[in-house]
């Protein structure tokens, strides 16, 4: 993808993000203030990119799953399982390395389970992942023993609330994961093969793509992202809450992917656009908290904003919007061509 086509792909998400930020700053004018105190950056935008970490991480894996025409409803529960595994490991005194290894392995095993159900047993993804969505919290509760498993490890909680050069660690993690997955799918042929099986599984298999293994790998990728999100959520509150960790986040992750302009019917995908989608959602969430409305309005405001965003991005509305913009562009058409030429 060249720079110009990439920009065209993510333009709706960038515009939406800008619009949401403007909207929030109307209610909370100090939105843009970022200060540097106690070796860390402090400000609402920093909160957004920190608080948005779990959904951003889930959205990375979810983007790939959705690109294969699947869906992964289990990521919230997988977060709980992985967070519980990590907390248990710390609690038992196995150290941070073992905790991270165990959490990552748990995420991969959950992904393997989902992937095998989908790819080898042919169960519809929504049903296959629903199983773990329901059972996963039970598994997490077995690990924590039904309580909030608290631990005391400054190294581990650094992952949730520490900073690197003033930037929150969760932010660093999701950005690096995003870049890592982005390079993995675009610098190799994985992205093309994933899109291919998403558009037409049968034809892709006949063209020699190992679709089953690829599907399993994609669900494992989603499980791994959920593990990272689970580790962050657990480290953040210094405890594994099997009941509430990642609760409903699978829906926010799907929403992020959709706001990112990725089709639920599979095919073309953009991880970057999904990450922007996650930031849009988090900006809305944080904005609602800042605006100081009574909490009864939270969900309604969020729903209204999401509807507006999705309607504006819908295929039937876009031509009308383009009509408006092309009129303006005609005046400066030569300039646009120059950019495209680069």
């Amino acid at each position: 993808m060249t720079g110009a086509t990439l920009l065209r792909r993510i333009a709706p998400q960038l515009l939406t993000l800008a619009a949401v930020i403007v909207l929030v700053s109307i209610y909370y004018p100090a939105f843009y203030q970022i200060v540097y105190v106690n070796d860390r950056l402090v400000g609402i935008p920093i909160d957004v990119i920190k608080r948005g970490a779990p959904v951003a991480l889930l959205a990375i894996g979810m983007t790939l799953v959705i690109a294969t025409r699947g869906i992964d409803l289990s990521v919230g529960a997988v977060m709980a399982i992985c967070g519980a595994s990590a907390a248990w490991s710390i609690d038992q005194g196995y150290g941070i390395g073992a905790a991270l290894g165990l959490a990552g392995a748990a995420g991969l095993v959950c992904g393997l389970w989902n992937g095998v159900l989908v790819a080898f047993f042919g169960i519809q993804p929504i049903v296959a992942t629903l199983i773990l969505m329901v059972a996963g919290r039970g598994i997490a509760q077995l690990i924590t023993g039904g309580t909030i498993l608290t631990f005391d490890s400054d190294t581990f909680s650094f992952l949730g609330s520490g900073t690197l050069l003033g930037v929150p660690v969760p932010t660093v993690i999701w950005i690096l994961t995003g870049i890592g997955f982005g390079l993995l799918v675009r610098r190799t042929a994985l992205g093309l093969l994933v899109e291919s099986i998403g558009v037409n599984l049968r034809a892709s298999t006949l063209a020699g793509i190992n679709s089953r293994v690829l599907l399993v790998a994609v669900y494992m990728g989603s499980g791994f992202c959920a593990a990272l999100a689970g580790v962050i959520a657990t480290a953040d509150i210094r405890g594994a809450d099997a009941n509430n960790a990642g609760l409903w986040l699978e829906l926010d992750a799907i929403l992020a992917v959709v706001i990112g302009g990725n089709s639920l019917l599979g095919g073309r995908f953009s991880i970057l656009a999904s990450l922007l989608g996650a930031m849009i959602i988090q900006t809305i969430n944080t904005g609602i908290l800042l605006a100081g409305f009574p909490s009864e309005f939270n969900l309604v405001i969020k729903a209204v904003l999401v509807i507006v965003i999705l309607v504006l991005q819908s295929p039937r509305i876009v031509p009308y919007l383009e009509l408006l913009t092309t009129r303006r562009q005609r005046v400066k058409a030569p300039a646009t061509k120059m950019e495209a030429g680069k």
């Binding site: 402090v42 009941n243 908290l289 100081g292 909490s295």
Partner: peptide, 26 residues
Amino acid sequence: VRSQTGDFTRTRGKEVMESFLQAENG
């Protein structure tokens, strides 16, 4: 001065408190 739901959970309690701190002059 400010009242928001934290859903009885630690995660949300922390998140909402962070926004309170931001909104009330650090």
